[in-house]
Design a protein around this nucleic acid. Sequence first.
DNA 1: ATTAATAGTTATACTTTCGTAACCATTATA
DNA 2: TATAATGGTTACGAAAGTATAACTATTAAT
Lengths: 154, 154
Amino acid sequence: MEDQKLSALVDNIISVKPLFYKTLGKPFPANADITPGAYYIMLYLKKHESLSMSDLGKIMMVSKPNVTALVNQLITKEFVIRFSNKLDRRIIMIRLSSKGNHFVDKNNQKYLNQLTKRLASLTNDELELFSASLQNVKDILSRIPICETPDCKK
Amino acid sequence: MEDQKLSALVDNIISVKPLFYKTLGKPFPANADITPGAYYIMLYLKKHESLSMSDLGKIMMVSKPNVTALVNQLITKEFVIRFSNKLDRRIIMIRLSSKGNHFVDKNNQKYLNQLTKRLASLTNDELELFSASLQNVKDILSRIPICETPDCKK
DNA sequence: ATTAATAGTTATACTTTCGTAACCATTATA
DNA sequence: TATAATGGTTACGAAAGTATAACTATTAAT
């Protein structure tokens, strides 16, 4: 890839991120007693059924004490359940409660409503292009290896 | 757009954002005595030549006191210059100094180097697709009207 | 000429992210 | 069985974002 294109790519990477929240709004709930980080844990649990504390740390790339704090928020709201692994009693697994599951679904629906309002100014073609392009971006990003956990850097 | 596709879109919007920094790294400098927010101001100034404090607030969607604090960081580093508008002496305009300009260029180059390492695992086709898709996303997002400044909500 | 509105700053404080160090419990290793 | 390694938690705090309220200076409006 030529230099010029690469530098345009850098430019886009830099400018796309702030645009996201500003135009599309925040996908996590406000005034729900849980921070965005905690909400993201629920989103991961939505896809992975159950995860250990360490798994969550790796997947979210935050330190373990951080995971503890985030999960604690969800425990007090009864959005997730802790249970231990029988094979290794050190390991603590986390899964969504049905309350947490409903909460995420409800919030996603709310966000979707907000989103459709904001996207109302787009034509259907634009919307399709947006959706497809975003899918591409996500797919490709997912393919890039990451190893930047605080614990993992060592 | 059908419900199913829309909900996939929401899914992508939610999951793309955390992927960004984690796979591509942070585009702003570390240990440079300025916060990411202040750096973003320089990026905007790179494109707009000069902007008033209020303009910066609107464009970055932060409150005016916030802009003051961010610009102050840049002033002490001599990365930007304050000058007043002759026609309306209330207005304070900000523009990049050549020092600030060089700083951004140098940092962009550094980020580009880091980025090329991270993107090394992609084929050229993937890279092209990524670049084009990102451009689409950015273009479409730019077309969506925004009005969420704290001051603007009122 | 008052009064109202606008641009910006100062002071202040809250929220969220995020890390390190020290510690306990459990499992693996030698 | 003594030691090391792993999974988690607790305690602590720094960095960054970000808002409101109260204020000054300047311009606009009546």
